[in-house]
Every structure is written in structure tokens, then in C-alpha cells.
């Protein structure tokens, strides 16, 4: 009984982390139709920046803010320096579908290699800003701590804030228009390039938040070779695809679903199957609903 409760709680927190990464991927996909594999590298870089800030100022909260801002800046920079150039050169042919994926994979390698060369010997780790010791009820310790609370809260806040922006402001409308019909949007007076860059910046910020929250939630260590970030990317992507790639709520639902399924597999089935089951969940969802859980049809019409 108690194990069941803890499994659910574990699923929710890890799901929340996947959701953050999924949100970042969805933001880029929505604004530029690119699946951004460099997201893992951007998150890693932002987290390293956060780590440096902690070294200087000894405050996680300042570091979190700086990392998020830096993440946004890195995202924007990648769009301005690479993506614009990429899109100005190739817009059709079979390569159009693959080129952005390849470009972002290349960027991921560049960021990783760069960090490896300059910071490979730095032993970096980030301590949790609030306690990670679980709450206790009637003698049992829950797999839920102030830190997990912070993580889940951050995800909900981010999702709501971004959804509000997207639904209620012109920025949201412009973002959608730029992604779906850039030419028409341009004619309508939308500054398409600027808006797309904004999408990349928002995504970079979300990815930075994911990195800064996951690092102390895991074992706290930070390394250019860290497996955590690769898996974060893979599971974040799977979560985003489950959610339909178009909607922020979809990303969160996808993340939570994946987190819960994996937690149950880990607790009740077998640790060796966790990766293949992630695949099976994904393909099951996609066979039933080829464009994800949260109706992309509505999205596409918009």
C-alpha cells in the first residue's frame, strides 16, 4: 500500500522533470518546426553557468535565475547564429526534414566537446536548495520532499505561465502564426524572425530550469559526460511526442504518463525493461492516436 503511494509520488516527480524538458522541446517545435536535440547541451551549459554562480555567490536562487536567463540567451543565440542561416539555405527536399535534427545534433556535440575541453576536470556538483528528505506521515517516509515540491511547483507554474502567454497575448498568437504560416504572418506584419527567436529563448529558459532542478534532485553531480542529460533528452522527447508535440499541456501530460509508467515498471516489473517499455508506451499511444494524446488536429487548424 505504502509502496504503491511512493511509486506514484516517484512517477509524478520524475514525470515533472520530463515535462520540463518536453516543454522546452515543444516550444522550439511550435515556433520553428525543429526537434531540438541541442536542448540537452543547452541545459548542460546553463547548469554549468548556474554552478559557477553558486561558486561565486553561494546562492542557489540567484544561480537559478542567472541560469534561466543564460539559457534563454544561449537559445536565442543558437537561433540567430545557426537556425536562421540553416532555414535561409534549405527549405525543401528530403533533407528539410532531417537537416534541423542533424544541425542540432551537431550543436549538441559541439557544446559537449567544448565543456569537456574547458571544464572536463572541474568537479562540479549542486546541492539541493531545500531539503530533499521526504515528508513523514505516521512513521512512514514519503518519496516526496520540499525539493520535489519545488520541482512539481515549478513545472505547474511554467506550464500555466506559458499557456497564459500563448492564449492571451499577441506574442502567443504571433508565435503560432510564425510557425504555421510564416509567409502569411510576415505579410500580416508579424516580425517572424524575432518571434521565432523568442520561442528559442523561452525553450532555452525552460531547459535551463530542468537542468538546475534535476541536477540536485539526482545525485547532484555535473559532468559533460553525464548520462542524466542524455536520458533527460530522450525521455523528454518521448514525453513531448506522446503529448503530441504541439501543446504545453500535452507535454506535461506526456511527461507525467511516462514518469508514472516507468516508476511502476521499475518497482513492480523489472529494471532491465524500463527503456524498451518507454518505447512500447510511445508506440502504443501513437498507434491509437498518430499525432499524440492531446489532439494535434485542433492545433494544426489554428
Amino acid at each position: 500500500m505504502f509502496q504503491l503511494l511512493n511509486t506514484i509520488l516517484i512517477g509524478i516527480t520524475s514525470g515533472a522533470i520530463y515535462s520540463l524538458m518536453a516543454i522546452a522541446l515543444v516550444l522550439v517545435w511550435r515556433s520553428t518546426r525543429v526537434v531540438n536535440f541541442a536542448q540537452a547541451g543547452q541545459a548542460l551549459l546553463s547548469t554549468y553557468i548556474g554552478f559557477e554562480v553558486i561558486q561565486r555567490f553561494d546562492s542557489y536562487w540567484i544561480a537559478l535565475i542567472v541560469a534561466i536567463v543564460a539559457g534563454a540567451a544561449v537559445g536565442a543565440l543558437i537561433d540567430v547564429l545557426f537556425m536562421r542561416f540553416l532555414f535561409s539555405r534549405n527549405t525543401q527536399g528530403p533533407i528539410a526534414g532531417v537537416a534541423p535534427i542533424i544541425a542540432t545534433l551537431g550543436l549538441l556535440g559541439l557544446i559537449r566537446g567544448g565543456i569537456g575541453i574547458f571544464l572536463g576536470n572541474t568537479e562540479a556538483s549542486i546541492r539541493p536548495p531545500v531539503s530533499n528528505v521526504g515528508f513523514t506521515i505516521s512513521g512512514h517516509t514519503l518519496a516526496f520532499s520540499p525539493l520535489k515540491f519545488l520541482i512539481v511547483g515549478a513545472v505547474i507554474f511554467l506550464m500555466l505561465a506559458l499557456s497564459l502567454i500563448f492564449q492571451r497575448t499577441n506574442i502567443g498568437l504571433a508565435l503560432r502564426a510564425s510557425a504555421y504560416a510564416p509567409e502569411i504572418a510576415r505579410l500580416a506584419g508579424v516580425r517572424v524572425d524575432g518571434i521565432r527567436t523568442l520561442g528559442w529563448a523561452l525553450a532555452g529558459a525552460a531547459g535551463a530550469a530542468a537542468g538546475m532542478l534535476q541536477t540536485p534532485n539526482g545525485d547532484g553531480g555535473l559532468s559533460p559526460d553525464s548520462l542524466d542529460f542524455s536520458l533527460l533528452l530522450v525521455f523528454g522527447f518521448i514525453a513531448a511526442v506522446i503529448g503530441g508535440l504541439e501543446s504545453l499541456i500535452g507535454a506535461v501530460v506526456g511527461g507525467l504518463l511516462l514518469g508514472l509508467v516507468l516508476a511502476f515498471v521499475l518497482t513492480y516489473v523489472s529494471g532491465s525493461l524500463v527503456f524498451i517499455i518507454a518505447f512500447m508506451v510511445l508506440i502504443l499511444v501513437l498507434l491509437l492516436r498518430p499525432s499524440g494524446l492531446i489532439g494535434a488536429k485542433r492545433g494544426r487548424r489554428a
Binding site: W29, V35, G97, I101, V234, F237, I238, A240, V241, L245, S272, L273, V274, F275, I276, I277, A278, F279, M280, L282, I283, L286, P290, S291, G292
Partner: peptide, 19 residues
């Protein structure tokens, strides 16, 4: 289509060898 297929095949690449 594109990204959905990319996601599925990525999950397979991670999942299959581990069994």
C-alpha cells in the same frame, strides 16, 4: 510523420539493446 517517427525510432535505439 517526421518528428513522431524520429521519436519512435529514438526510443527504439535506446530500448532495444538493453533487453
Amino acid at each position: 510523420s517526421g518528428p513522431y517517427l524520429a521519436g519512435t525510432t529514438l526510443a527504439l535505439a535506446v530500448g532495444l539493446p538493453s533487453i
